[in-house]
Simulated scan of single mutants.
Amino acid sequence: MSNVIVVGCGRVGSQLANMLSDNGSNVCVIDRNPDAFANLGRNFNGSVLQGIGFDEETLLKAGIEECDVVAAVTQLDNTNLMVAEVAGRLFGVPHVIARLYNPDHERAYMQLGIDYVCGTSLVAEDVFSKVVAGHGSHLDTFGEFEVLRFSLNLNGLGKKTIRVSEMERDHDVRIIAFERGDGSASSIPTRDSILYHGDTVLACVRHELIESFSQYIQD
């Protein structure tokens, strides 16, 4: 069960908070406007906190010191950027995701190495997929693709090895590189390369496929 702070309780933030709550996460929603919490509805199981999302005291009250993920999804890019910087750099939150409302600001987000979702539709679904994919597994975003670095989990398949071609075919991903779990070797794979449970894998995955692919990501 993960601890998630969602900053912003508009349409996107409230939808995301409900999705995460329904998925079993402990969710705290921050918004400066207390009336915004009405967007969550009666079935929301998390907590709410009135305040400014990049204020240190507010974040401490929200439990940021035990937080796995912070999602800054207000309609103000500067606010989301400040939340991401404070959460990531000051508090060391493992996975910080920011909504990018104006694509003109994309370069700034990329230069700062911030994980982001750009757009005005399906934003909640995209952020949810990033959270479900596993904390700290994200490396970069390229358009509709995510580059992930993770420890390979094959427990759900009931076997200890898998061929690269099988992973790529079944999940429409590209395995870029891998390193053996014991650090003995690393390689750029061919389609016939064999991966072992516990290997470190670098993969390129489409946004919409991250949730289904997350079965391979070891927490």
Rank of each mutant, 00 (worst) to 15 (best):
V4R: 01
V6L: 01
V7M: 05
G8W: 12
C9G: 11
C9M: 09
G10D: 10
V12G: 06
G13C: 12
S14V: 02
L16I: 06
A17H: 03
A17M: 07
A17L: 08
D22Q: 11
G24N: 06
S25G: 03
V27I: 06
N33P: 01
F37L: 04
L40V: 10
N43E: 14
Q50P: 01
G53W: 12
E56I: 02
L59Y: 02
G63Y: 06
I64S: 01
C67P: 02
T79C: 03
L81H: 07
A84E: 05
E85N: 06
F91N: 06
G92P: 00
G92K: 00
I97W: 04
Y101C: 07
Y101V: 15
P103W: 08
P103C: 13
E106F: 00
R107V: 06
A108D: 05
I114P: 03
V117P: 13
T120V: 09
D126Q: 14
F128N: 02
S129Q: 08
H138T: 04
H138L: 14
L139S: 09
D140N: 10
T141H: 12
F142N: 06
F142I: 14
G143S: 08
V147S: 04
L152T: 15
G156P: 04
G158K: 13
K160Q: 15
T161V: 07
M167W: 11
E168H: 11
D170C: 04
D170A: 06
R174G: 07
D182T: 05
G183C: 04
A185L: 10
I188P: 03
T190M: 06
R191P: 03
L195C: 10
H197F: 04
G198P: 03
D199E: 03
T200G: 10
C204F: 03
C204S: 14
E208V: 09
L209F: 07
L209R: 13
I210E: 13
F213Y: 15
